[in-house]
Design a protein around this nucleic acid. Structure first.
Lengths: 132, 132
DNA sequence: AAGTAGTTTAGAACGGTTTTAAAGTAAAAA
DNA sequence: TTTTTACTTTAAAACCGTTCTAAACTACTT
């Protein structure tokens, strides 16, 4: 399926800007990135885009499930093109994230979900510290 | 051990402001809170404190291990007086956190830690969605 | 009591993100 | 087609949580 179809299937109009973003993000290679990272990449690809559009686009992509946002307490939002159920190593000093495939972790026991709620996904973060 | 001793043991001068914060936070009842929550609570206890001091104080408390900061992608930093190794339920709509005791989760298998790094703690987040 | 190192403060600055409102564009209707 | 309509993009301003600045203050040491 090409990117235009991916956008349409997700219910998004395939505008010029969204196609530029899709071409960068939805190429089969997974990555973690910030809004600023993405804008830089757009610029160095010879295109340009308002930062507001970058954010709008990321929000739409996220709501459609085309990308994910990672849970970290960093001050900048980090996005992930890997939308599969998976986990992360987090280098707390640098903020760097490394994917952990779902199969590499097994949760043996989980607590009862509170009344009135559903389990909407589990994220495991293994914090890393440089070894000296 | 009283709060003055706790601060001294942590290597912090027990200033008037830090004692006010310690009296609120280190009373044996665990809670999650933001800097703003804390300032409100200080105000309604008849005291007052500059927001800069609230942040300074939280940073010092955190660096000394008197409190923790929780990993969430919320735009506001969330702190936790529970410094024991534990996990969280996260209501993504409201940002509300609920503690999960360490014993309530068992991680059966974890991946190999990347070369040059040490495992510096694992955080499990179970995201919740309201059940309709 | 005097000195000094650390702390608090108001207000400014900062940085990531969102809003605004006007111009532009894609899709639907005529 | 052309027109209409709804959606999108944009630069710039606003926003908001957090940090910085530098002057006043305070806890501790001498």
């Amino acid at each position: 399926m090409n990117n235009k179809e991916k956008l349409r299937n997700a219910g998004l109009r395939p505008t010029k800007q969204r196609m530029i973003v899709a071409d960068i993000l939805l190429n089969g290679f997974n990555r973690h990135f910030t809004a600023e990272n993405l804008q830089d990449e757009i610029n160095s690809s010879g295109n340009s885009m308002s930062i507001a559009t970058v954010y709008n686009c990321l929000k739409k992509f996220k709501n459609c499930g085309l990308i994910k946002q990672v849970e970290t307490s960093k001050d900048t939002a980090i996005f992930d093109t890997n939308t599969d159920y998976h986990h992360h190593f987090l280098n707390e000093e640098t903020g760097e994230l490394i994917d952990i495939e779902n199969e590499e972790i097994s949760l043996h026991k989980i607590p009862e979900i509170p009344q009135g709620y559903l389990n909407n996904g589990i994220e495991v973060i293994i914090k890393l510290k440089r070894h000296n």
